[in-house]
Design a protein around this nucleic acid. Sequence first.
RNA 1: GGCAGCGUAGCUCAGUGGUAGAGCAGGGGAAUCAUAAUCCCUUGGUCGGGGGUUCAAAUCCCUCCGCUGCUACCA
Length: 575
Amino acid sequence: MAKRILITSALPYINGIKHLGNLVGSMLTADVFARFNRARGHETLFLCATDEHGSTTELAALEAGQEVVTFCAEQHAAQADVCRRFGLSFDHFGRSSNPPNHRLTQHFARMLWKNGHLELRSTKQIYSNADQRFLPDRYVIGTCPHCGYPAARGDQCENCTRVLDPADLIEPRSAISGSSDLEIRDSTHLFLKQSQFVPQLREWIGSKKDWPVLVTSIANKWLDEGLHDRGITRDVAWGVPVPDDIGDGKLKGKVFYVWFDAPIEYIGAAWEWAEANGKGDEWKRWWLGEAARDVTYYEFMGKDNIPFHTVGFPVTILGVRPQEDWKLVDYLKGFNYINYYGGKFSTSQKRGVFMDTALEILPADYWRYYLIANAPEGSDSNFTWDHFAGVVNKDLADVLGNFVNRITRFCASRFDGRVPGEGEYGPEEHALIEELQRRVQTYAEHFEAIEFRKASAELRAIWAAGNEYLTRTAPWTAIKTDRPGAAAAVRMGLNLVHTFSHLAWPIIPTAARTIHETIQPVAGGGDLIPWPEAPMAEELDQLEAGQPIRAPEVLFAKITDEQIAEWTARFCGEE
RNA sequence: GGCAGCGUAGCUCAGUGGUAGAGCAGGGGAAUCAUAAUCCCUUGGUCGGGGGUUCAAAUCCCUCCGCUGCUACCA
């Protein structure tokens, strides 16, 4: 029965191309899950967008010597391009700075204001006269009052790790201009009264028995420590403006905090999708009220994002009830981090591998397979070039690629490159069919449970079962004495190739298509290779006798020791 | 400092009360269709240390050690 599946990936921040850790923790895993659901025939809406607002963007644009609007437009285009080349199949890749998010963010704020969940509070903010702007805490630097470290940031001292208040710093100065002409000014802000929602949130989180421990433990930690009310406006220029009818007109010139508007862009992206595709109000069907009741909503993100999705965004949604009933997340998949040789991937230090440079080196499917098979689900995982090359060479080149190659070439040389029709399936074939029936079921169950490592391991086992079968039946030997027997084995082998393509498509879509085309063209345009839903006895006996096949070029070239050495040197980082 | 997660074979990781597992790497063998690719067998671990509960603990409890992350105005 077709289901309706809404999937959002955590929004990549606009500031630069993302690294492999960002990719696997949100966009890629969400993509594989989206493809799996589409392949099974479920109505799927997969959304992502760039998260563009905030002081970090303003300062990055400043550094790049660009207007913020230009900077964001260029960065968005660059990210959209690299995502497309990675095969990320967003139904829409939006922008948090686009009009739908402005409208929605202001709408949610008005509703929260009307429902009494927002209040005005006066706060002390650091203002830099030289920069003519308020400074976020981390952009005030000075000497740490605890350890004397001279370059401590206003939020936390990197040296002694203590949490600081910028007012505590000795000789504070602006991180932007270096100016020490700073003053403390009063500034009025809107606060979201999150503390009122603790019982509701606790009950909601408590009901999610199937969420990863990582997710519920982080959520419960925040609830146990007592939720602080959170300021949802900022004294910056680049963001969604606070409308005049909120806060008694005392918030002129202020914008909403990026973490308030960014999750709302999940809804905004659906609106953008509808506008871009002439679908009118259809986006509401996915998000709002009774029409969205049968939608199951999945979120994917790295662990740093979990508090905002288990507390912040849910409060926004709960706070506009009962008037409006927007979708709360049904399943939240959180990921740990990938480390690079024991250290963190770092955008600022250019340490590690980034999406654009990854594609300069190897096709997307190499990365997709490796990252999915080693997704940091249980704990942080560690990327090394040796490990990467080992997995790619063994699993993709040797087990899968070589399987396709050996059977198609044998068919080409001994059966005229056509699916042989002679011979009948016997005990070996029936045993294989039974095994695959079981394994494919398990593989699907791992996907449904959103367990990527386990799914990948099962897929690999399915490929290996093909190799084991060929070894047992040995058509290259059988052909000398039992041509029909050899023919049946080859026919089975080709059916396996075809089925492998369908099974692998969610993870390695491009290679899956190439593999499929060794047997026959992909039906219906080729944007989707559906799940093999029929019993394996049918799936593995569906190729027409006499149908021509074509042995492929090398599907997956092996990574050489020289390449490993070169890449290790090239990507060692700047330390 | 507080909190959380993790610690299982050389490596990457499954395994939450009932005789320690997988893949890779290592060793032996088979096969020769294939990208020297495959298949079979196999070496290898007092499950971070210690203590406790239990007929039985990798699994539950306590404690210590180590690693990682979070700690709310960077996102």
